[in-house]
Nucleic acid binder design. Structure first.
Length: 138
DNA sequence: GCCAACGTTGGC
DNA sequence: GCCAACGTTGGC
């Protein structure tokens, strides 16, 4: 069971929109980076991840779940990239900001703190628990 | 196959 | 709005 982190600019696709999309979820399309692609390909249905707002907010705001495994991204004219479908599971009780993550010594190795440009990132089980706790979830 | 030029991302 | 970091493109 792996954990992930998905970045999105709220102007483009926000947590609220993800929640509105409901149980059926939405495709996480638009990934055009090969490292992110490999992460998408490794995902299995039921695996959970953090939803992170980049640029505006700069915080983890919610938890999503993979509901459909990797398949071709129809917005990619080259056919090289794919996507998964995600649904919103629950919001954090309070957002966990990038600032707070960087200030937490146990999260020093977190990808978000070191390679902020990668749009789909792996999260370790330990990091998952720490950030969840910081977000007010048991 | 190398690498310079360019475009994009995202924190500040 | 700036700019550093990074990825991609394309000429050679």
């Amino acid at each position: 069971m792996a954990y992930w982190l998905y970045k999105s600019e709220p102007k483009t696709w926000s947590w609220d929109q993800q929640v509105e999309a409901g149980e059926h979820g939405t495709p996480w399309n638009g990934v055009r980076n090969h490292v992110a692609k490999l992460n998408l390909m490794a995902m299995q249905v039921g695996e959970r991840g953090f939803f992170y707002h980049s640029n505006e907010g700069k915080a983890v705001v919610g938890i999503v779940e993979v509901i459909r495994p990797y398949y071709p991204d129809d917005t990619d004219p080259t056919g090289r990239f794919g996507m998964v479908d995600l649904r919103a599971v629950e919001p954090l009780r309070r957002p966990v900001t990038l600032e707070a993550i960087k200030a937490e010594p146990r999260l020093k190795a977190m990808v978000l703190a070191n390679n902020s440009r990668l749009s789909v990132q792996p999260v370790t089980a330990e990091e998952w628990e720490i950030v969840r706790g910081m977000g007010g979830l048991a």
